[in-house]
Nucleic acid binder design. Structure first.
Lengths: 353, 353
DNA sequence: ATGAAAGCGCTAACAA
DNA sequence: TTGTTAGCGCTTTCAT
């Protein structure tokens, strides 16, 4: 490969080979248009020799579309999303698309900007985990021309493709499990209920209590977190604050269900520091099932969200849509599952499953 | 914003406004070319009304360069890289560049492909954390036309911009600290020494022992890991395997220095499971200082690598280079620092620092 | 099987 | 201040 200062184009190659640019284009763009084997070889050889790199802008401009897939997530440091992202990325690559990752940093304005940016790039499609409010999102999506799949958040009346997590059921499962383990006084610990997912979890938690005829009143703690740049640290500190709040109650509950693993771990560690042992004195359920759950003491019982499956499925569904606009709409609800580890104490010997 | 099937271009707007496309371009591309306020308003209004989105390919083709910065890292699920990435990303955005994230999955071939892809896109510059061998990387970089900054790995004789971590010093610091805490029999635990960084750490470890006149022989355990897709799990299991290997020795050492935090945590948990308490029976040092260190029991003493600073610095330096090709070469060595938590026992009451 | 040429949307040099 | 026009590199009709 030569070290050329200037970019070499098909017309350069055409000149060297003594053929027209059309022929060069035909072989280099792997079109199925017939070109003699001889010329084909010659052109490919020259291209390699001079280190030809197709100019993607010329191609895209001409063809009017790119083969990129934009993926917008609220965080890339959150292990849950980075897992999901990684899976989606691989799926795109394996189907011949280039993933374009956008981190909205849970910021509605940034998310909107990134959507515009992706539109300007004429990406082939968009995978979006939105943090915008339902109204804003709904309004914004009206203008979008390209294939798009929503995951993680949707809104009532959304008619397009989407993949959802069943937050309601996840929290229900967590709460139900605690009840089955013999706990009665169960509190719900969360950051602000500003997102749909969190509200759904709270509903699921309440429903599980109701279904077992347990009272819900006052059994909720919410802490408005301070700003922290780092996701993991932020939620970890939030968990500690929730622990503090928990100890301010007149009496300790039996168990607590949290909205994510990091918060649960923060809470457990704070409690430990204050001399309260989990699960002996109190049981705790996490949510998400990130890798860290296995690593902490005690290993955290949690609700598994299928991040990897969701990531690749989202990509697959989107690509189906891209390649066949008439493909029927898919609206999928991913199913959460219970992961038993050691942060929940079984008060009754026998647990009904 | 209207719902137009077809993409609207400047010539559509020019037609509606009754002006030339040049005028429209001048207004919409925010050139400083003078246009009457009246027309400016009119054109902007129309553009908004019809939902005009500039075609980036037209722009790029014309201008011959994009404002993207390609960032290649070996993993996006590894919290160390995701932190670094996040910082680099923010820095790019704040200086008007669009980050284009590429995950090489620690795969040399994929990395090479992504480099080509970025070249084809004529990105403004590249931030690269390579996993390729020195020879391959050196050879490949010769052909690269655009500004590029290497971090994490470099090679002898590299003349361009780079930001390195001082792995040697990091491991030296870790080992020295253990010695200062009164430990004598210190083992080095690692996965295969196939990467420069790991070799450097091993050297740093040996040097620290030498400087204290301690013997190095047989004080190393290496385990060749099996393939695991998930970074965190992989290294965690690797840590457990290393723990197993450790217990196969005739006698337990005083302490072990590991090459990253996850491995250290895996090792500690395995040992715990086998009834050996850290730091009481054995001290362990991690490496990287990821958020999880704080969360585990005991909190992990480790060597802090400035991921965030490195990420934004890499972006800054690259952008300097992009905007001024004659900017003098910068080769920076980021300094590691010791983070004392509770995984190291102090045998002597007084520790010299 | 090959070539000539139009044109994708945009910017900028040149004209008016 | 505004308009005209020539490409940027590529693909693809339409001729040959």
């Amino acid at each position: 490969m030569a070290k050329n200062r200037k970019k070499v184009t098909i017309s350069d190659i055409a000149k060297i080979a003594g053929v027209s640019i059309a022929t060069v284009s035909r072989v280099l763009s792997r079109s199925d248009y017939p070109v003699s084997e001889e010329l084909k070889r010659k052109i490919i050889d020259i291209a390699n020799q001079v280190g030809y790199k197709p100019n993607i802008f010329g191609q895209m401009l001409r063809k009017g579309r790119s083969c990129e897939i934009g993926i917008i997530v609220p965080s890339i440091t959150n292990p849950f999303y980075s897992q999901l992202l990684s899976a989606a990325e691989q799926q795109c690559l394996s189907q011949g698309y280039v993933p374009f990752i956008c981190n909205s940093m849970s910021n509605q304005q940034l998310e909107l900007n990134q959507l515009s940016m992706l539109e300007e790039r004429s990406v082939a499609g968009i995978i979006l985990s939105s943090v915008s409010s339902d109204e804003v999102l709904m309004e914004r999506l009206k203008g979008v021309q390209m294939p798009l799949i929503l995951f993680d958040q949707s809104f009532d009346g959304y008619k397009g493709d989407c993949i959802q997590f069943d937050f309601f059921k996840g929290a229900y499962l967590a709460t139900e499990y605690l009840i089955q383990c013999g706990h009665r006084d169960i509190v719900f610990a969360s950051g602000e209920l500003d997102r749909r997912s969190r509200c759904l979890m709270y509903e699921g938690y309440k429903q599980a209590l109701k279904d077992s005829n347990l009272s819900v009143s006052k059994r909720k703690i919410i802490y408005t977190s301070t700003e922290e740049e780092n996701f993991e640290k932020k939620d970890y500190y939030l968990g500690q604050e929730l622990g503090k709040l928990l100890l301010q109650k007149e009496y300790l509950p039996d168990a607590v269900v949290t909205i994510n693993d990091i918060i649960a771990i923060g809470l457990i560690n704070y409690l430990k520091h204050e001399g309260i042992q989990v699960p002996h004195d109190l049981s705790v359920m996490g949510f998400d099932d990130i890798a860290t759950c296995e690593m902490v003491t005690p290993p955290l019982s949690t609700i598994h969200q299928p991040a990897v499956e969701t990531g690749s499925l989202a990509a697959k569904v989107l690509i189906n849509r891209i390649e066949d606009m008439n493909h029927k709409t898919v609206q999928i609800m991913m199913q959460p599952s219970l992961v038993e580890r050691d942060s929940v104490r079984k008060v009754h010997k026998k647990v009904r499953r």
